[in-house]
């Protein structure tokens, strides 16, 4: 029972981080129909921005804010000077569906190389603001720690803010209208170009939070070749697909399914299955519910 609760809490924590990454990918997908593999690189770069900030002000939460702003600016920059041009020149023909994928893959490597150039290839450390020693219940010590609790709180807070932004504000309505029907959005007077850039910026900020939280959820180390960030991209992508590539709620459900199942596989089945568990979930999802948990059958491709 004790072990079960422990696993559950660990799964929820990683699920929360995956949800954020999934949301970052969904925001870009919805605004420009691009599967953004560079998202892992952007999150990595943003986390290095946070690391740099912590050198000057020893406060993780302010560094998190700076990482978000840096991530937003980086994403907006990529959209404006790179993707806009690319999508314009490759909008038709066989290349149209492949070009953005190859381009973002290339961008991922470019960002990695630039990070190595600036910060070197060795591990750097980001100090967690809260204890990573688990809570104790009687004589038992949980793996679930104050830091993990704070991670869940940050994700819940961020998701609530984004949910209000999407559902209750004119900015949210512009984002949704531009995603579902760019032409009608334009006819309603929305500057779809600007809204797209904003969607990317929002995605960059969300990815930055995922990156910063990922590092302090682990052992605090960060490197350009980080396997954790590659896994974060894959997990986020799978969570987004499982959730239906469409809604905020879908990405949270997708993230939780992924976080919980990998945690339970790790605890109860085998260490060696840890890396393939996400892919098994992806295959099952694509075979059983290709439209995603919340996606509508036969509906518009999200």
């Amino acid at each position: 029972m004790f072990e079960f609760i422990n696993t559950l809490l660990i799964g929820i924590t990683s699920g929360a981080i995956y949800s954020l990454m999934a949301l970052a990918l969904v925001l870009v997908w919805r605004s420009t129909r691009v599967v953004n593999f560079a998202q892992a690189g952007q999150a990595l770069a943003s986390t290095y921005f946070g690391f740099e900030a912590m050198k000057h002000i020893d406060n993780f939460w302010i560094a998190l804010l700076i990482a978000m702003i840096g991530g937003a600016i980086l994403a907006a920059f990529i959209e404006m000077v790179f993707m806009r041009l690319l999508l314009k020149h490759t909008s038709s023909g066989a290349i149209a569906s492949v070009a953005p994928i190859i381009a973002t893959l290339g961008l991922l490597e470019v960002i990695r190389a630039l990070i190595t150039l600036k910060w070197g290839g060795a591990d750097v450390l980001i100090k967690a603001p809260l204890s990573n020693t688990g809570f104790s219940i009687g004589t038992h010590t949980l793996v679930f720690s104050p830091m993990k609790l704070a991670i869940i709180a940050v994700v819940v807070f961020l998701l609530s803010i984004l949910s209000i932004l999407f559902q209750k504000t004119n900015i949210g309505l512009s984002l949704r209208a531009s995603a579902f029907s760019p032409e009608l959005a334009r006819l309603a007077g929305i500057r779809v170009d600007l809204v797209r850039t904003f969607g990317w910026a929002l995605s960059g900020a969300t990815g930055a939070v995922a990156g910063m939280l990922l590092v302090v959820n682990g052992n605090g180390s960060l490197s350009p070749a980080s396997i954790e960030f590659s896994l974060l991209l894959i997990s986020g992508f799978i969570a987004a697909v499982v959730g239906g590539l469409d809604s905020l709620l879908g990405t949270v459900i997708g993230g939780m399914i992924l976080g919980l199942s990998t945690a339970f596989v790790l605890m109860y089945i085998s260490d060696s299955l840890f890396f393939i568990a996400p892919f098994i979930i992806l295959l099952l999802a694509l075979i059983i519910r290709p439209q995603g948990i919340l996606g509508k059958k036969g509906g518009r491709r999200a």
């Binding site: 309505l173 949704r176 209208a177 579902f180 029907s181 009608l184 006819l187 007077g189 929305i190 518009r300």
Partner: peptide
């Protein structure tokens, strides 16, 4: 549209993923 021109394009010019009121609010955004 800011100069007073509204276009209802061909084939039910609404966004099915939004609510009725959101579609209306869109026009005045």
């Amino acid at each position: 549209v800011r100069h007073g021109i509204s276009h209802v394009s061909e084939g039910m010019s609404v966004i099915p993923e939004l609510t009725v009121e959101e579609n209306l609010d869109l026009g005045a955004i």
